[in-house]
Simulated assay, not measured.
Amino acid sequence: MTHWLDEPCATTAFAWTLRRRDGVALGFTSHDRDLVIDGLLHRAGPGMVPSAIVENVRLDADGLDVDGGLTSDAISEADLNAGRWDGAALEIRLVDWTDPSRQRQLASGELGEISRGGNAFKAELRGPGAALDRPVAPRTSPGCRADFGGAQCGVDLMRHRRERPVILAEQEQLDLSGLADGALYRFGRLRFLSGRNTGTIHDIADGKEARIWLTQPPALAVEPGTRVLLSEGCDRSIATCAARFANAVNFRGEPHLPGNDLLTRYPGGR
Rank of each mutant, 00 (worst) to 15 (best):
W4R: 09
W4E: 13
L5F: 06
E7Q: 14
P8Q: 07
T11H: 14
T12Y: 14
T17Q: 15
T17C: 07
L26Y: 06
G27C: 05
G27W: 02
T29G: 09
S30Q: 02
H31S: 04
H31C: 03
R33C: 00
R33G: 02
L41Y: 10
G45W: 10
G45V: 00
M48T: 01
M48D: 00
V49K: 13
L59G: 01
L64E: 09
D67W: 13
S72T: 11
E77Y: 10
A78M: 12
R84Q: 12
R84G: 02
W85T: 01
D86P: 00
G87H: 14
L94K: 04
T98G: 08
D99A: 15
P100W: 11
S101Y: 05
S101T: 15
Q103T: 11
R104P: 00
L106F: 06
S108E: 11
E113N: 07
I114Q: 08
S115Q: 10
N119G: 11
E124P: 02
R126N: 03
G127R: 09
G129R: 05
A130Q: 12
L132M: 10
L132R: 06
L132K: 01
D133P: 01
R134N: 09
G143S: 04
G143K: 06
C144N: 13
R145P: 00
G149R: 04
G150S: 14
C153A: 14
C153Q: 10
V155R: 10
D156P: 03
L157V: 14
E163R: 12
A169N: 05
Q171N: 13
G178Q: 07
Y185L: 08
R191D: 06
F192A: 12
F192C: 12
S194C: 08
N197P: 03
D203P: 10
D206T: 07
D206Y: 03
K208T: 09
K208W: 04
E209I: 04
A210V: 00
R211D: 04
W213G: 09
T215I: 15
T215N: 11
T215A: 11
P217L: 03
P218M: 09
A219K: 08
A219V: 05
E223D: 14
L229W: 12
L230V: 14
L230S: 12
I238V: 12
A239L: 07
A239D: 15
A239C: 07
C241T: 06
C241G: 06
C241D: 13
A242N: 07
F245C: 05
N250G: 01
F251C: 03
F251L: 07
R252Y: 01
E254G: 04
E254L: 10
E254Q: 08
L257Q: 02
N260E: 08
D261G: 07
L262Y: 05
R265Q: 13
P267F: 00
P267V: 00
G269V: 00
G269K: 01
